Amino acid sequence: MTLKTRCITLLCLGLFQIGLAQTPVKIKKNSSEKVVKIDKKEFGILPDGTKAELFTLRNSRGMEAQITNYGGIITSLTAPDKNGKYENITLGCETLNDYLKGVPFFGALIGRFGNRIAKGKFTLEGKEYTLAKNNGPNALHGGKKGFDKVLWKATPLNGEEPQLKLNYTSVDGEEGYPGNLNIEVIYTLKKDNSLQINYKATTDKTTVVNLTNHTYFNLTANVNKEILDHEVTILADKLVPVDRTLIPTGELTAVTGTPFDFLTAHKIGERINDANDLQIKYGKGYDHCWVFTDSSNKLKKVALVYEATTGRKMEVFTTEPAIQFYSGNFLDGSAITKGGIPAKFRSGFCLETQHYPDSPNKPNFPSTVLKPGETYQTTTIYKFSVK
């Protein structure tokens, strides 16, 4: 072997050894990037014979979200208490049949229009549209068969932060709404113990859109307990007052000096039965829309809920301009949750990020109109920790 050949051989061997030395570092780096898989199983069979599925998302900390493609429903969401114990902190059912029997929107995706539309009618570009009246004289949460009662196409996306992508096309005229609306909703269970919901929609005809999620929370993880001792902060200085059918009057009023002032923390039960407040009387408690002090479309913190016995804390972030705070005033025990426990009066609360109710009939409210070529896009995050 010549000196030149020997040098080349040693050089190649050295580079090979360097490569071997570097390989474990690369493997170590990759091994630390934990891929958290999504489990899937059959959830039940719908009356038309199609199958619904249940997906379980888990993050690296042990938090778990169970979501079915029937109605995009969050059937369960766990969060840690001050002792590190993860428990389900939502109201949900055991089986698909339990949901099919009828529940008050437990954990569901709501659309095309979350909240109420007066008298089930609105006019858009000079044409009047008629909707189903499914809440007294008004339309509520998309109609008799809103997005909470349809089967979404589900695509699980495995990764460090597991995601479930849901797609649905609401055809022109469905529940009375104009335009073929293509919707995409992505649930992401994040590393920091938050659940992020991204909404996106496009249309081929001018329509109205107001999507939200209707999860009922009880941070005690015990549906037998009322939510009245939960401490709530809502960073909103205005309220959307309503009439006796819970339709907005069209004005906005200051929350200061009223039972609706949650700019500083108050227990839900502290003022919920104020007999002197007409809005409390109309809602049988809290069932109203708050307008954020920062009503921009940037992602911002808008609410905080704290439950002292477990130490659980929930923060809400959104790009939406308002939130519907509902204190479970119409829960009557008829809907049965996991473990066979009836959902009784005020056993859960909702914080539904959204635009104002009846916006299609209130030109002074922020617009919910979506036109061809535009994209409806919003984000909401529910983050859980302990205090």
Rank of each mutant, 00 (worst) to 15 (best):
T203K: 03
I234Y: 01
K225N: 09
T5R: 15
V255Y: 02
A118G: 06
R112I: 10
V185S: 09
K37I: 13
T155P: 00
G84P: 14
L3F: 13
R116Q: 12
K153S: 13
T212S: 08
Y99L: 14
T56R: 03
F122V: 01
I73S: 05
A343I: 07
N180A: 11
D98M: 12
T378L: 11
E128A: 09
T253D: 14
G62T: 10
I38F: 00
G114A: 08
H266K: 14
K119D: 12
Y177Q: 02
T380G: 06
L54E: 08
T9Q: 13
P137W: 06
V185A: 11
G285M: 04
C350N: 02
G340D: 11
T253K: 15
T75S: 13
G71E: 12
Q196C: 12
Y177V: 12
N59H: 08
A139I: 00
N182G: 10
I323D: 01
V242S: 03
T9H: 10
A254L: 15
K121V: 09
L370C: 11
K338E: 08
F113W: 03
L100W: 07
T90F: 02
N30T: 07
K383V: 09
K387E: 15
G19D: 03
Y199A: 11
N182R: 12
G173T: 05
G339C: 09
T380P: 02
Y187R: 01
D237E: 12
T258S: 13
P156R: 00
T203S: 13
S170E: 04
A275C: 02
K313T: 14
K313V: 14
L235C: 11
L299Q: 06
F43K: 00
D148S: 14
A154I: 07
K51P: 08
L157A: 06
G269N: 01
G120A: 05
L211Y: 05
K149T: 13
N222Q: 09
W152R: 02
L351G: 00
K383E: 12
F260N: 03
E251H: 11
Q377E: 15
L235W: 08
K26W: 12
L140S: 03
N158C: 07
V185M: 10
V208W: 04
H141E: 10
K133I: 02
L3P: 08
T95A: 10
S334Y: 04
Y187P: 01
T215A: 15
G142L: 06
M314E: 00
D294N: 09
T249L: 14
G142W: 02
V36W: 11
